[in-house]
Nucleic acid binder design. Structure first.
Lengths: 142, 142
DNA sequence: GCATAATGTAATAATAATTATTACAGTTTA
DNA sequence: TAAACTGTAATAATTATTATTACATTATGC
């Protein structure tokens, strides 16, 4: 799994704490420690699904459009990483009963695993994440 | 996540269907479509945990030591891939409240996710996997 | 004893996936 | 019309995964 999922969570949490004004991809990328273009790519997905809106030009950036407790981690996972749990099986030997059938069996099991994971992730909304972040040891924001 | 987990499942399923004799890493690797050295590495982990035993020399190979229904997929996950769900967070900005705390928050959430996944994976033993493989469309083994 | 067939494992090479960077077009503001 | 943004494609760099090679070790059968 690449880190689009966690970057999306990071970005949305950042936006949640700046809900009164727009944040630039530069500001978010500095907070997350990755390249701004990557942030824009991830946020472009979230925009497509209506979680945030963006504005180009001076004073532009990204801002949350929904209520924090309307967006949960499963929603974000589905947008950024659906199927990521699925194992990548190399082409196995079709002449062997195991090789011929393992892919199908694993696919079914991992599909169930992803659904199960979904039940867990639905318990966390961005609001909860923000609350956890606010229970901080460290503080300070720029 | 690398494919050690699925390779371990594949290998154990293979051994389960050959429970009366030893199987070589060459035979398993041919079934799984990967290099025999990789199979030996994965099986060396499973051996360390007592799921299988091995024998060197002519006529040697690997064989199951436990009952098929004693080994579940969570056991195998823990051996081959513990912590693999954990996101790799780049060093983020400690001066930002989000950057300073996100790693800790995500770590906690993903730890819970892995535990939750465990509950699901415990439902599948190698016996169940073997049964699923036997409900095959394709058949034939060499 | 010795050739052969296997595991065990380290070191290295090749490949694939992820991430960063560059480049530039489009938009908005002042 | 310059400056500050987003949007996105193309490419480069880096990292992770997998394959390969090499060789030591162990067991078997002749």
């Amino acid at each position: 799994m690449n880190s689009d999922f966690t970057l999306a969570i990071h970005s949305l949490t950042f936006l949640a704490l700046q809900s009164d004004r727009m944040s630039t991809s530069d500001a978010i990328s500095e907070s997350a420690g990755v390249h701004p273009v990557r942030i824009r790519k991830v946020l472009s997905l979230l925009k497509k699904h209506g979680f945030i809106k963006s504005k180009e030009g001076t004073g532009g950036g990204f801002i949350f459009t929904l209520d924090l407790s309307e967006v949960n981690l499963w929603d974000i996972y589905m947008i950024t990483s659906e199927g990521a749990l699925q194992p990548k099986c190399p082409d196995s030997n079709e002449k062997c009963i195991v090789g011929a059938n393992m892919k199908r069996v694993l696919f079914a099991i991992f599909l169930g695993a992803e659904e199960h994971l979904g039940e867990y992730l639905k318990n966390y909304t961005i609001k909860e994440v923000v609350d956890l972040v606010n229970q901080d040891q460290n503080s300070g924001c720029d």
